[in-house]
Design a protein around this nucleic acid. Sequence first.
DNA 1: TCAAAAGTGTTCTTATTACACCCATGG
DNA 2: CCATGGGTGTAATAAGAACACTTTTGA
Lengths: 245, 245
Amino acid sequence: MGHFDNFFKSAFTVDNVIFGFDEGDLKVLLIRRGEEPYHGKWALPGYFVYPNEDLDDAAIRVLEELTGINNVYLEQVQTFGAVNRHAFGRVITVAYFSLIKISNYTIQPASIALQAQWHSVATVSPLAFDHDEILHACFMRLKWLVRSRPVGFELLPPKFTLTELQHLYEAILETELDKRNFRKKILSMDLLIDLNETQEGVAHRPAKLYKFDQKKYQELLKEGFSFELKESRKKEVKKRSNNSV
Amino acid sequence: MGHFDNFFKSAFTVDNVIFGFDEGDLKVLLIRRGEEPYHGKWALPGYFVYPNEDLDDAAIRVLEELTGINNVYLEQVQTFGAVNRHAFGRVITVAYFSLIKISNYTIQPASIALQAQWHSVATVSPLAFDHDEILHACFMRLKWLVRSRPVGFELLPPKFTLTELQHLYEAILETELDKRNFRKKILSMDLLIDLNETQEGVAHRPAKLYKFDQKKYQELLKEGFSFELKESRKKEVKKRSNNSV
DNA sequence: TCAAAAGTGTTCTTATTACACCCATGG
DNA sequence: CCATGGGTGTAATAAGAACACTTTTGA
C-alpha cells in the first residue's frame, strides 16, 4: 500500500454552527479565535478530529467543550474542502449544526477561544476561513428542516407560549406568519401538551404554556406521519396558462 | 504548528453514487473492485482526493474516468467517517450522487475496476466498505430532491414521453401515481415543450415526445418558483382531533 | 380485430388563505 | 382606564385525490 502514502497527509476538522433563540432573534454561537490563523477573528467553534474519533463524536466534543452540554440536536450538513481553505495544509471540514436552548447553559470559552458570544444570525460580520459560507449552508438547512420536522422545539425552553413558537418560526423562515392560521395548523397536529399554566408577571393577558409531546411525535413518526409546515407566500406567483396541451 | 502534525495523517476519498434510469428501473453504476481491500466485491466508484484537488473536482474526475462524461448533475450528500471504515488507516469519504442519461454513454471500467455494471437499486447485493449505507443515504436524498427540483429530467433522454417520466417518478418515489393527476400536475407547470413528434415503431398508439424547458425553469427559479411534487399517500392517516384547544 | 398503451375531465374532499374583534393583565 | 399582547372562527379559494372510457397503432 506504499503508493497510497501520499494521500495520508491531510487532516479534517468539524465546525459546529450552534443555533440558539433569544429575544425573538435567531442566534449563532461564535468564538473569537485565540490561535493562528485568523487570530482574534470571530469564527465557528470547531477543531481537528482526533485519530480515533468518529465525526459525530468530534462535533459533540466541540460543543461540549464550549458549552458544557451534550445530548442536543446535532446534524451533519455539508463538507467543505477547497484546496487552500486552511493555511496549515490540506484540511477539509465537516459542518454540523446543533440546536440548543440558550437559557439552559452558560458558555465557557474553550482553550482555543478568547471569548465566546451569541451573535444574531441576521447581522453577523465576516468570519474566519470559509465560515460565512458554512454558516449560510447550515442556516439554509435549518430553514428546510424546520418545515419538515418539529425541531423548532429544541430551541425553546421546555415550557413556551404559542407566540414564542411563532416568533421562532418567523425568525428562521424570515417571513411573517398569520397568527390564527399558525395556531390552527400547529394545534391541529396535536403535538403540543397544554400545561394549564400561564405566564406570570407580564403586563398583558398572560399566555398559556405548552410543551412538545415528544412521545406522541415518536409514535406518529412510526406510522409515517410527516410534520409539514408551509412557507407563506404573500406574493402570489401569477398563474401560468397550460399551453403545452 | 508542530503539535498539529498528528492530525495530518489521514486521507479522504469521494464515492459517487451514479444513478441512471433504464427499462423502468432506477439503476446505480457499480464497479467490481480490482484492488484490496474488498478485491472482487461490488462497490461504489470512488477514489482518493488528490492533494491539490477540490472535492467536487474529485467527484467529477471519478465519474469521468469511469464513463467518459463530465458536465452532469452532481451533488454532495453526506460524509462518512467511522474510525475503522477503511483498512489502510483513517479515511473519511465524501459521498456524491450524480444523474446521467444511461443511453448516452458506454461505460469504460477504470483501472481500479475489473468491471463496471448497472445494478437495479431495488435489488443491489451487499457492497464493499460502508457503501450500502452510502447508497441508501444518496437514494433518500434523490427521493427528496426529485420532489423539490426538476432533476428527474437529467435521467431521461432529451426527448421523452409523459409515461416515461411518470415511470421514473414511480421508480424513485417507490409509489404508484395516478396517470391523469400526474399529467395534469406536470403540464400545469408549463416546463415541458411539446415537440410535436411521436414515438415510432411501437405496437400501440404512439406517445407524444416532450423536452424539458431548461431556460424557462431558470427564469422561474429567479422569481422564486418552487417545483413541488407531492407524495401520494394512498393510505390516509386518520384525522386527529383538536383537543388542545 | 385484437392487444397494448396513450390520452383526456369532472367531482369530491381537504388544505390554505385572508381577515377583525374581544379578553385578561399590570401599571 | 389604558396599553399590551393573548386568544378566537368563518368564508372563499386552491390543491389534491379518485375515477373510466375512447383513441391510435402494429401485429
